[in-house]
Amino acid sequence: MLEFRNVTKRFETPGGQEVNVLQDVSFTVDDDEFCVVVGPSGCGKSTLLNLALGLVPVSEGQIIHNGKVVESIVSSDVGYITQDANLLPWSTVLDNIMSPLEIRGVPKAERRAQAMEWAEAVGLGKFVDFYPGQLSGGMQKRCSIARTMAYDPAMIYMDEPFGPLDAITRTVLQETLLNLWQTRRKTILFITHDLVEAIALGDTVIVINGQPGSVKARIPIPLSRPREIRHLAADTEFVELHTKIWSYLEPGVESMA
């Protein structure tokens, strides 16, 4: 379980002043929940994940991860798919996917098998011997998804994992993710700026907006599961949710124009 309690984050600007990036953010993600955070670019979504994992310290408030206050880097059975792929440029796709398994001491043959399975799942089966520099941006991102999924952490933080992908690849991977989550139950905190994706995947959608970013709404998504992602757009309930969430995003979008 993850809990944000009145978290505020300030960064120092290049001019030397302090600016609030997140303001008084509170929410909880329950065990096995699929929680999606939506918000416009620059509202502090990536910062939110970095805070949750203890990569940067909070300025005010507290974050509680599985009952413990986050004070340093969280590394217990969690996965983080960062916005940039963050692969090792000197390791092949397969070695990149295997590295967390290697860290966990998984025997070599098993490690290979697990990594291959996920390379296939994200469509990189034929590229396992490539170096990241030989992959496109979207392929690098898929490799980083496979790297996290292959070691199967109980809690996964994802920062726009399907952002740079085309509609078809994205839908396939969304379905893969949903299947996985349904069979293996995990706690997922998923960042996106795609409203359709948010509603299609989440149990809950948290809308963050504004400068500084703050929680504007916490909307449960009552759509039944398993969901047919490809046909959701025609669903009346879906359309209502879409309109509703859109209204919380609107002011921020306008002020950015």
Partner: peptide, 29 residues
Amino acid sequence: ISPMLVKLFQVMGAKRGYVARKVVLPSLS
């Protein structure tokens, strides 16, 4: 060296030695 890359490996559970061998040393090559 990218601090994010180092931190990400710590999230994955990597200890100092692993980070030194797999991230820092190759970054320095």
